[in-house]
Computed example of a mutant assay.
Amino acid sequence: MKMKVVTIGGGTGLSTLLKGLKHLSSFEITAVVSVTDEGGSSGKLRKELNVPPPGDVRNNIVALAEDEDLLAKLMNYRFMEGSLKGHSLGNLIIAALTKIEGSFSEAIRTLEKVLAIKGRVLPVSEDHARLVARFEDGEEVVGETNIVKKNGKIVKVWLDRSIEALPGVTEAISEAEMIVFGPGSLYTSIITNVLVKGVKEAIKRSKARKVYICNLMTQPGETTGYRVSDHVRELERYLEEKVDFVVVNTKRPSPEVLERYRKEGSDFVEIDVENTQNTIIAEPLLTEIVDPLDGKKKVRHDFLRLAGVIERISRW
């Protein structure tokens, strides 16, 4: 019998985790993905076609696909000129399928069947909402992109309107034996899911092991200066309960990569959770990869090592 695992997040971090988890035959994976992204191609399609942002969903479907290399090249292909400039082919395919199937979730289900992915990907909701943040100076900013641009200390986040979680999302959470949060942007990829009506309530009712995978680096305009304890405190504040396990990385980036990140306003997330009610798992999980788009080295989780940690937790 496979263990039912629900992952909650969005963006690059969650897709990295899924790349590793799909190799574990003992897991039945459901990825719950945020729908408040407003940047780039996703933001344009959301505004112009009135569809939920497809970018994070696309990344996670590709991550769960068996023939990932070929699919990644096709689905992530980005047009560099003409009227389609800035759009990725995968986003356009998902937007087209949404119109054909009549709903975002049906479009995803169709694509999952075509690509025969190892698991399923669910948007947290099909409704539209924008993330709102109040900063330490009292200013309230609407929209993920604007929140990051503000580059201040966030005091509170919420959605500009109440939206309902998909029934499949709350059902998956209620049946889960393990719920994994992250890795990913703390407010704009993880907590934004918790704000959707029905999600937090389902998590609080769940008896599943709850695991938080902390980011490797802080994010400019979102978690500047945050240590591990700050990330955990904020997630638990919105969950309104403790997580059982916190997975943290002990390996620092190379000096030249760390220096470049610092110039961009980001820094290594320091571990400071000695006295905590959570079980802390601290291991060297960082790797550096070369981004094919700009040729720069980027910091990422080692997806196989990370999957190994999650598998160990599943046996505890």
Results as ranks from 00 to 15, higher is better:
S25H: 08
I289D: 00
L159E: 12
L84C: 00
K242L: 08
V199Y: 14
S34T: 13
G152P: 13
K207H: 11
V32S: 00
I289C: 10
S162K: 14
P54L: 03
I100G: 06
L14W: 05
L74P: 02
G13D: 09
V299Y: 01
G184M: 02
V273C: 14
L49T: 03
T170D: 03
E175L: 07
Y238I: 10
S103Q: 04
N151I: 04
V228E: 07
G55M: 07
T98I: 09
R312H: 03
D37V: 05
V148M: 13
G152A: 09
D272I: 12
P53V: 04
I289F: 04
D67I: 09
D294K: 04
N215M: 07
S34M: 07
N249V: 05
H87Q: 00
S314V: 02
L64V: 15
L258P: 02
I191Q: 10
S206V: 02
S83V: 04
G10A: 11
S185I: 02
L306R: 08
F79E: 00
S254D: 06
L216T: 12
T224S: 10
K242Q: 13
V248E: 00
S34P: 01
A96N: 07
N275V: 15
E144M: 10
L166R: 04
R46C: 03
F268M: 05
E101R: 11
Q219Y: 06
R260K: 08
V121K: 14
T188H: 06
P255C: 09
L304Y: 14
V243S: 00
G9M: 08
I100F: 13
A96G: 12
G184I: 10
D69S: 09
Y261C: 08
A31R: 01
K200L: 12
V141D: 14
L216I: 07
L14N: 14
G221K: 15
E48D: 10
F181M: 05
R205I: 01
V6G: 12
K156Q: 15
A63H: 13
A63T: 06
T30D: 07
T250W: 03
E139A: 15
L186C: 13
K149N: 15
V33R: 03
W316C: 04
L304V: 10
I310P: 01
V124H: 09
A172I: 00
R315E: 02
K200D: 07
V5L: 14
L293Y: 11
L235A: 11
E236M: 06
G90L: 00
F135N: 12
G9E: 12
T16N: 15
G265S: 04
D302V: 01
F245A: 00
S174E: 06
L24Y: 00
M75D: 02
E140Q: 15
K47E: 15
D294T: 03
P183W: 03
T36F: 08
L216V: 10
K153M: 11
D302S: 11
S189T: 09
I61H: 04
L18R: 07
P183S: 06
E140V: 14
N60D: 14
K263R: 15
P54N: 02
R237W: 05
K297M: 09
Y77F: 02
G11P: 02
E259Y: 08
